[in-house]
Write a protein that binds this DNA or RNA. Sequence first.
DNA 1: GTTGATTTTTGATGTAGATCAAAAATGCGG
DNA 2: CCGCATTTTTGATCTACATCAAAAATCAAC
Lengths: 186, 186
Amino acid sequence: MSFHSYLASIITVSDELQEAFYKLTHTKEVKKGQLLVRSGERCNDIYFVESGLLRGYYYQEEKEITHWFAREDEFATCFYSFITHVPSAEFIEAIEPCQLVQLPHANLQKLYASFPETERIGRLLTEAYYVRLEGRFLGLQFTTAKERYDNLMKDHPQLLRRASLGHIASYLGITQETLSRIRARQ
Amino acid sequence: MSFHSYLASIITVSDELQEAFYKLTHTKEVKKGQLLVRSGERCNDIYFVESGLLRGYYYQEEKEITHWFAREDEFATCFYSFITHVPSAEFIEAIEPCQLVQLPHANLQKLYASFPETERIGRLLTEAYYVRLEGRFLGLQFTTAKERYDNLMKDHPQLLRRASLGHIASYLGITQETLSRIRARQ
DNA sequence: GTTGATTTTTGATGTAGATCAAAAATGCGG
DNA sequence: CCGCATTTTTGATCTACATCAAAAATCAAC
């Protein structure tokens, strides 16, 4: 979905607002495997994914841990770095070719100031991040690896075809071997 | 610490702002064991803890799971309910007698509108919640029960005297028995 | 296709922490 | 200071998942 259609689905986009959006965002195409943000850099942008698939990951004792996926019609950013202006602990990688819309932090602030209705975007973003994290936290504490896998497949049935087992396993908080065994029996 | 001193330590409090605060907040005293919010109710207030200790908890398969503690000089609310206006999934209980300052959501919005510098409060709150959750998420995934316990004791050495083992164990994501054994050996 | 690199599967074994049960310690109202 | 409720400790056993290692399958470049 285009960023514009997405916006129109959550707020009323006046002509002025539409124009402001065109001025304050720019589109970006990235190839498979390309990094958008590296650990240690500041992440000053939000990306809206028009098409393709991104993942955020970080290193934990030499191992890559996938922290999130963002597919078409979702926002992606290193949330903590974006809100605090601190260098990011994570990488953002395109695991499919992507069509993105980039919105810099400063421009988002301009939008808030001129078009109060856009505050809703910020709110939705914060909520989405918080809720996503909370869900994963509870999942880690209270569900088995198999249940987490089943839930993920229910919400994102295509993910298995689009991301590697290793990415999905670390996202679920288990090893690749365990995920492979979970899939085998059933 | 009084709410006023706390505020003065993070933002400059003009006379007008101080007056607005007096109008828009009110103090509240609660006894040990008293509930501030019940699951199913909306949580429309933030509490600043001037003295005492609160905990947030919810039920997971009949068991109480402590989600957070808030001691003096900290804010407490059912964060998700507060930002989304959805009924709370959690309870807030005073586990010590508390002196609180209550700030309703609507009044916080008024403050934001009239005193832009107060936006910092909202930002700090969001960040604090997000960071706290992220820390616990990573802890659950990558550290042993003992490490989590040691970290908690480093940050809150008094907590063991102020909260029960059961509360602390569920906060750490382990059973009471395991926490008891962890403490025994060392 | 053939080849080498990468990803996924399978097998054997180890372990942190859960569960169930009961004893011991602590706290508290009268 | 006694009796009862609550909290904490200790013991025995069980299990989900990790780790290490190697085989099998898939992918991608030439």
